[in-house]
Simulated scan of single mutants.
Amino acid sequence: MKKLIYLLILTLGTTSCSSDDENINNTYAFIAEYSTKVTVGGVIGISDRTFKIGEKYTGVNQGNNVITLRIAEHSELNNDCPNSWCYQELLDVPSEFLKLIE
């Protein structure tokens, strides 16, 4: 009987946990040009980057009108950062520059 009660409590506990829908990776497109500095690594280091209207990236809505976009995939170069070859993978962008692609 105790095992049945523990199973019931465990089942209720896991089903009552809700996922935060705001933290799901979505696709976003730029609706206005956005310029910023990004770390590109290597000899160049930091570079100015302008994201054009229509460029699409996956991202997470962080709330407070900020969306974190993945602008580069992770690779072995970024495993032991910081070093001179590390590059920027994520970028926080104000949500006014982006729209959610359904």
Rank of each mutant, 00 (worst) to 15 (best):
Y28T: 03
Y87H: 07
G41S: 01
N25K: 05
Y87N: 06
S47G: 00
S84E: 15
S35I: 04
D20V: 00
S35Q: 10
T39R: 11
V60A: 00
A72E: 14
S75A: 09
L7E: 09
L8D: 03
K37H: 09
D92Y: 11
F51G: 05
S35W: 13
G13Y: 10
Q88Y: 13
N23K: 12
V66S: 13
N64D: 15
A29S: 10
D48G: 07
S19C: 09
Q62P: 02
L12F: 05
T50P: 03
T39F: 09
N65F: 07
S16N: 02
Y6F: 12
R49Y: 07
I9M: 08
Y57F: 09
D80G: 10
V60N: 02
T68H: 07
V38F: 08
M1A: 15
I67C: 10
N64I: 13
V40H: 08
I53T: 05
L90A: 10
N25H: 05
Y34E: 06
L7A: 12
Y28F: 15
N79I: 15
L10P: 00
V66N: 12
Y34I: 00
I5L: 14
L98E: 08
D80A: 08
D92I: 03
I46H: 14
E73M: 03
L7S: 15
P94V: 03
K2F: 06
E33Y: 06
K56F: 13
N23P: 01
I5H: 07
S35L: 11
I5A: 05
D21P: 01
F51D: 05
V93P: 07
F97Q: 08
D21I: 01
Y34H: 09
K2P: 00
I46K: 08
L98M: 08
N23W: 15
S75D: 15
K3C: 05
E96L: 10
Q88P: 01
C86A: 04
E89F: 13
Y28K: 13
L12A: 02
G13E: 07
V66K: 13
I44N: 14
N25I: 00
S35M: 11
S19D: 06
N23F: 12
V43I: 09
P82M: 07
I44H: 13
G63W: 14
S16P: 01
F30Y: 12
K2C: 01
G13S: 09
V40A: 06
I9Y: 13
E76D: 11
L90Y: 14
T68F: 07
N65C: 03
E22P: 00
F30I: 01
V93W: 14
W85Q: 06
L10M: 11
C17N: 10
I67K: 14
L98Y: 12
T50I: 04
E55T: 00
D92F: 04
S35G: 06
